[in-house]
């Protein structure tokens, strides 16, 4: 797209289709994540229908994995909701970045585009917008394909888990942890991250000891670490 940045923002069928086509390479990266999520859901004791409903309505891999790692019976409703909120808080900052597009949309085009906004297609849409793209349909198109693929890979993962019937502690469940370890390598922004990360890890370990069998350690560690880092960055300037 070479339209000038003063051109009006549009939302066309062609844009939606282009978003769908351009996000296909991203599906390769989503596939192992979706499979791991499905296998983990099966390992936690969720039925195929429950796994489908979670993938379709939540559609946030990191949150699903964090919650499933601390799953219990009956399901921990409040802890699962709060942990999901904490993990997905970053998304609250993703929408505003695309406001040059989103501010021009109304109704289902706006709220539907936000529903299917995930890390990968958000980054892709941002690249398109920064390059002068004016068709906001790209975000919805790429998001729809990713959403469908997320549900499909989650279902395949669940079926794989059923066939393999893995015992608890099987190394295949380590894949969920590996997802986060590899994402951390991408999130590393430099030595300024050392202090907040050490505080987060320390507080999380202590909280996990104090409140075993719950997911509070994730919220406590993230809050302590991000407040430490945020306050330091704010007052050092």
């Amino acid at each position: 797209m070479t339209a000038s940045s003063s051109a009006p923002v549009v939302f066309t069928r062609a844009g939606v289709l282009r978003g769908m086509k351009e996000c296909i390479p991203l599906l390769i990266g989503v596939t192992p994540f979706g499979l791991v999520c499905g296998i983990t859901a099966q390992g936690a004791g969720l039925s195929f229908l429950e796994t489908f409903l979670m993938s379709a309505s939540v559609y946030a891999g990191s949150a699903q994995l964090v919650v499933l790692a601390n799953w219990a019976h009956p399901a921990p409703v409040v802890a699962a909701t709060l942990a999901t909120f904490a993990v997905n808080l970053r998304m609250a900052l993703m929408g505003p970045v695309l406001s040059p597009w989103l501010d021009r949309l109304r109704g289902w085009r706006l709220w539907g585009s936000l529903f299917v906004m995930a890390d990968q297609n958000w980054a892709q849409a941002l690249g398109d917008m920064t390059a002068g793209g004016r068709d906001a349909g790209v975000l919805l198109g790429s998001g729809l394909i990713m959403w469908v693929w997320w549900i499909v890979t989650g279902g395949i993962g669940h079926a794989m888990g059923t066939v393999l019937s893995l015992p608890p502690g099987h190394p295949l469940f380590f894949a969920a942890l590996a997802v986060f370890v590899s994402m951390l390598a991408n999130m590393w922004r430099g030595w300024g991250d050392v202090l907040p990360w050490v505080i987060a890890g320390g507080v999380a370990v202590v909280t996990a000891r104090l409140l075993p069998g719950t997911a509070w350690y994730i919220v406590a560690g993230a809050l302590a670490g991000s407040m430490t880092g945020g306050l330091r960055d704010h007052f050092r300037r």
């Binding site: 990191s62 900052l93 590393w188 922004r189 991250d193 990360w197 999380a204 991000s226 945020g230 306050l231």
Partner: peptide, 17 residues
């Protein structure tokens, strides 16, 4: 500034324990 640190510290809090 605080929210910018959330993704990294959150995943550290999940992985380290």
């Amino acid at each position: 500034a605080v929210m910018a640190h959330i993704p990294g510290t959150l995943f550290v809090s999940f992985v380290v324990p």
